[in-house]
């Protein structure tokens, strides 16, 4: 007979117990994106999620990892089997070496390779978190494909820890490509690069120079290089600190206020020197729905008080 599942993981249960059923609390990850959505109120009790790799199954292309592990550490282990995840590990122009798996998921911002590797939310298969009543909850499941029940994982990714405290995650891994390199293209139209380069996982543009990250079979990257305008091997540019969110086609008519900018071509994220003066508005109905979610999951607003997923 099948019995209802029981979580026997002592470390996770201890984490949930530490979060407890009451009182304001915030999970501290690497602290690298602490400002996103506003820093939590002063004096809030901080807890740390456990760290370490629980189970890595290279043949299944999945890994179960504690939320407190840094993405860099995780990727170092996966690299031994020629794999990695879509999470930002600080090796490229985005993210930091000290950002944690839990933090990356809670903030929900994909690295510049989103064009080719997809949004990080699509790499999260299962999350175990402490809910507002202190109980340990499983969202999603361990397999690479799963529609059992409502998609709680998607809601938690990018929730800035306001709905639950993430203890661990099962992530989808992907094989590292046979070949990868950044190239810099002068005098290239970003749209043309987007249409032509079949192996590009990232295309960046600062208004005049285009950088592309080409990944795949050696021969395919070669073919792309032959198809594209003249290019040279290069390092990707540094990203200015502020993040604007636009439609991909709006990248070509950005306002003056950006200062120096780096745009993610085909995605629509723009890294700018100044904050977005004119962010896309949130409709009242959607704002109300966001508030209702927060109220139902965390009625006492004990998680990350002061932080909010809604732009102010």
């Amino acid at each position: 007979m099948i019995a209802p599942p029981v979580i026997e993981d002592a470390e996770l249960l201890a984490f949930a117990a530490e979060v407890g059923p009451s009182g304001p609390v915030a999970v501290r990850g690497g602290g690298t994106q602490w400002h996103v959505g506003g820093a939590p109120d002063h004096g809030v009790r901080e807890v740390r999620a456990p760290s370490g790799i629980v189970e890595y199954r290279p043949d299944e292309m999945t890994v179960c990892v504690r939320a407190g592990t840094t993405v860099a550490e995780l990727h170092a282990v996966l690299a031994e089997h020629g794999q990695r995840t879509a999470l930002p590990d600080g090796s490229g122009p985005f993210g930091s070496r000290s950002s944690t798996v839990g933090g990356a998921i809670a903030v929900g911002r994909s690295p510049v390779t989103r064009l080719g590797n997809g949004h990080i939310r699509d790499a999260v298969l299962q999350l175990r978190y402490a809910a507002a009543d202190g109980r340990l909850v499983t969202a999603g499941g361990p397999t690479v494909k799963n529609v059992t029940g409502f998609d709680m994982c998607r809601v938690l990714v990018g929730s800035l820890g306001t709905l639950g405290c993430i203890g661990d995650a099962i992530l989808r891994t992907r094989p590292k490509p046979e070949h990868e390199q950044w190239v810099q293209l002068e005098d290239a139209e970003p749209q043309t690069v987007l249409r032509t380069a079949r192996t590009a996982t990232a295309i960046l543009w600062d208004g005049s120079v285009v950088w592309a990250r080409l990944c795949g079979h050696h021969v395919d990257v070669e073919d792309d290089l032959a198809r594209l305008p003249a290019s040279s091997a290069a390092q990707p540019p540094d990203l200015p600190p502020y993040r604007w969110s636009r439609r991909p086609k709006d990248l070509y008519c950005l306002p003056e206020e950006t200062g120096r900018f780096i745009a993610e071509v085909g995605v629509g994220v723009v890294h700018c020197e100044r904050p977005d003066p004119d962010p896309p508005p949130v409709a009242p109905g959607v704002a109300a729905l966001n508030r209702r979610v927060r109220e139902l999951f965390d009625p006492d607003r004990r998680f990350n008080p002061g932080r909010s997923v809604e732009r102010l």
Partner: peptide
């Protein structure tokens, strides 16, 4: 349609 709509991923 923008890259990172604000709020929870409803």
């Amino acid at each position: 349609l923008e890259a990172e709509p604000s709020g929870y991923d409803l």
